[in-house]
Design a protein around this nucleic acid. Structure first.
Lengths: 110, 110
DNA sequence: TGGCTATTTGGCTATATGGCCAAACACGAA
DNA sequence: TTCGTGTTTGGCCATATAGCCAAATAGCCA
């Protein structure tokens, strides 16, 4: 790979990697609606608080979320609304795959 | 996490995970322009053929690319053009992070 | 068929990740 | 300041990934 392109792809990969986990996708989706504190997100995810905290750190390091303390809770919010479009594309990939799968299924029934 | 949502997020995560690697992002970007065979992609990536072959398998399993043999080469092509939009969003995330970073830098200079 | 080239698979190692538990930390409120 | 709640960090283990090399496979073409 051309050395000049490497940092570019590494930066992008970091963001995608940060999103590439079921629990983190749930968190992202919930944060699209409104901000939530760690406690609330922990309940939604259904894992240990420390686990969710680490997921949030991953998202924060990737620049996807921001946090802010208010009273004695730390609230997280999404930093980029475009992530919604992102998911539309992911769904399209899934849809195309599903279509193929259907074809295969039909083919087998014959 | 609600059990009914789990498969949904797992499916999405699988796709994002498949994209979340510098070499695979390079491959995706090159395949946006035109189809290429393993050999050609190997040269672009600059890794062992077997490594690139495995990357392509990952992309194929995620439903992102399709392959087709012609003559004695196997050509790979993108299955979802929307991935381009995807990258625009990733770039936006990077841009926002960069902006913040600049702010921090400025702040420190004072 | 047999050889040749392109591609995939298996084996191995080093490294990264996710999960839980326990402990540390942060900070508002009494 | 001390308590208590909310959050993060460290430690540990099990599992997954990326990389290379070597070997196996696939299938075109003579």
């Amino acid at each position: 790979m051309k050395a000049s392109l490497k940092p570019r792809y590494e930066a992008r990969a970091k963001i995608l990697k940060a999103m590439a986990h079921p629990s983190r996708l749930l968190i992202i989706e919930e944060l699209q609606k409104q901000e939530w504190c760690v406690n609330e997100l922990t309940e939604m995810v259904g894992a240990d608080t420390s686990t969710v905290s680490k997921h949030l750190t991953v998202l924060k390091n990737a620049g996807l979320v921001a946090d802010e303390r208010r009273a004695n809770c730390i609230y997280y919010r999404l930093r980029c609304p475009c992530i919604l479009d992102f998911m539309e594309c992911v769904e399209e990939v899934l849809a195309v795959s599903a279509k193929d799968h259907q074809k295969i299924m039909k083919c087998c029934k014959k």
